[in-house]
Measured scan of single mutants.
Amino acid sequence: DIEITTNGEEDAKRVIKELQKRNLEYHIEVHGNQWVIKVR
Rank of each mutant, 00 (worst) to 15 (best):
H31F: 11
H27P: 00
A12T: 06
G8V: 07
E9W: 15
K17R: 13
R14H: 07
N7I: 12
N7W: 15
E18S: 06
V30I: 14
K38T: 15
I4W: 08
D1Y: 15
R14N: 08
Q34K: 14
K17M: 12
E29L: 06
V39M: 04
I4V: 05
E9R: 09
K38D: 01
Q20M: 10
R22Q: 14
E18K: 05
Q34H: 11
T5G: 03
V15M: 06
N7T: 11
Q20W: 04
K38A: 05
R22W: 14
G32S: 04
E29R: 05
G32N: 08
R40F: 15
K13R: 13
K38W: 10
R22D: 06
K38G: 02
E3V: 15
G32H: 05
E18R: 05
I2T: 08
I2N: 05
I37K: 00
N33W: 05
N23Y: 05
D11I: 08
N33R: 05
N7A: 09
R14Y: 09
D11Y: 09
E3L: 14
N7H: 11
Q20R: 10
W35K: 02
D1T: 14
V30N: 06
D1L: 14
R22I: 07
N7V: 10
I16A: 05
I37E: 00
D1R: 10
T6I: 15
L19A: 02
I37A: 00
K17H: 10
Y26A: 03
K13E: 08
Q34W: 10
Y26T: 02
N7C: 13
L19G: 00
I37G: 00
L19W: 01
E29V: 10
A12H: 03
E3Q: 11
T5M: 12
I37W: 00
E18A: 10
Q34S: 10
V15Q: 02
E10I: 08
K13Y: 13
V15C: 08
H31R: 15
D11Q: 13
R40D: 06
E25F: 10
E10M: 08
N23T: 03
G8Y: 07
Y26I: 04
V30F: 08
E29Y: 09
N33I: 06
A12G: 04
T6F: 10
I2D: 04
K38L: 11
I4H: 02
L24T: 04
H31E: 05
E25A: 12
D11E: 15
I28E: 01
E10P: 05
H31K: 12
R22F: 13
H27A: 10
K13T: 07
H31T: 10
L19N: 00
I28K: 01
I16Y: 02
K13N: 11
R22S: 09
V15A: 04
R14P: 03
Q20I: 14
A12L: 13
I4A: 01
E10W: 09
G8A: 07
E3S: 13
E9G: 06
E29S: 09
E9K: 07
I28S: 02
K17F: 11
Q34C: 14
V36W: 02
K38F: 13
K21G: 07
N23V: 03
K17N: 09
A12W: 04
Y26F: 13
V15D: 00
D1E: 13
E10N: 07
Q20C: 03
V39H: 02
W35I: 09
H27E: 14
H31L: 10
L19P: 00
Y26R: 00
G8D: 14
R22M: 15
L24K: 06
G32T: 03
K13Q: 13
N23R: 10
V15L: 09
V30P: 02
K21D: 13
H31I: 14
Q20E: 15
W35A: 02
V39K: 00
I37F: 07
L24H: 03
K21Y: 08
G8R: 11
Q34E: 09
N23W: 04
I2Y: 15
K38I: 15
I16Q: 03
Y26N: 00
R22K: 12
N23C: 05
E10D: 11
D1I: 15
V30R: 11
E29I: 11
Y26L: 04
N23E: 08
N33K: 07
T6R: 05
N23H: 11
V36C: 03
V30K: 10
N7F: 14
I28R: 00
V36G: 00
I2C: 15
V39Q: 01
R14K: 13
E10Y: 08
K21H: 09
H31V: 14
N33D: 13
E18V: 08
Y26P: 02
E25L: 13
E3A: 10
V36Y: 04
Q34F: 13
N33E: 11
Q20G: 05
R14T: 07
T5A: 07
R40E: 07
L24P: 01
W35L: 05
I28A: 03
E9A: 10
E25W: 11
I37H: 00
R14Q: 09
D11V: 07
D1S: 12
E25V: 12
E3H: 11
L19D: 00
E3T: 15
E10V: 08
H31W: 09
N7Q: 13
T5N: 06
K13H: 11
I4K: 01
D1Q: 11
V39E: 00
Y26M: 03
D1M: 14
G8C: 09
Y26S: 01
E29N: 04
R40L: 14
R22C: 06
E29T: 11
R40S: 12
E18M: 12
I16K: 01
G8P: 01
E10G: 06
K17D: 10
I37Q: 00
H31Y: 10
E25S: 13
E29K: 05
G32F: 04
I2H: 08
R22E: 08
N33S: 10
N7R: 10
R14I: 10
W35H: 03
N7K: 09
T5S: 07
E29P: 00
H27T: 15
Q20P: 01
V15Y: 07
W35E: 01
E25K: 14
D11W: 11
V15H: 03
N23P: 02
Q20S: 07
H31G: 02
V15I: 15
R40K: 15
E3D: 07
R14S: 07
I16F: 03
D11L: 08
R40Y: 14
E10T: 07
R40I: 15
V30M: 09
L24E: 04
N33F: 08
V30D: 02
N23Q: 10
K21V: 08
V36D: 01
E9Q: 07
E3N: 07
E25D: 12
A12Y: 07
R14L: 12
K13D: 07
V39F: 08
T5E: 06
N33V: 07
L24S: 03
K21A: 12
V15E: 02
K17P: 01
T5Q: 09
N33L: 08
D11R: 07
D11H: 12
I4Q: 01
K21I: 10
V30H: 09
K13F: 12
H27L: 11
I4R: 02
K13S: 08
V36S: 03
I4T: 02
V36F: 05
L24M: 10
L19T: 01
E25H: 13
K17W: 11
L24Q: 05
L19E: 00
Y26H: 03
E10L: 09
Q34T: 14
N33Y: 08
L19H: 01
I37R: 00
W35T: 04
K38Y: 14
T5D: 03
V36L: 08
R40Q: 11
E9L: 11
E29M: 08
K17A: 14
I28N: 00
E9S: 06
K13L: 14
L19Y: 02
D11M: 12
V36P: 00
V39W: 05
N23A: 08
E10F: 07
G8N: 15
R40N: 10
N33C: 04
R14G: 05
K38Q: 05
R40M: 13
T6K: 03
R22H: 14
I16D: 00
V39T: 03
N23F: 07
Y26K: 00
L19F: 03
K13P: 01
V15S: 01
G32Y: 03
T5F: 14
T5C: 13
H31S: 09
I16H: 01
K38H: 12
W35S: 02
D1F: 15
H31M: 10
L24R: 05
K21S: 10
T5Y: 15
K17I: 13
K38M: 08
T6H: 02
I2P: 03
V36R: 05
K38S: 09
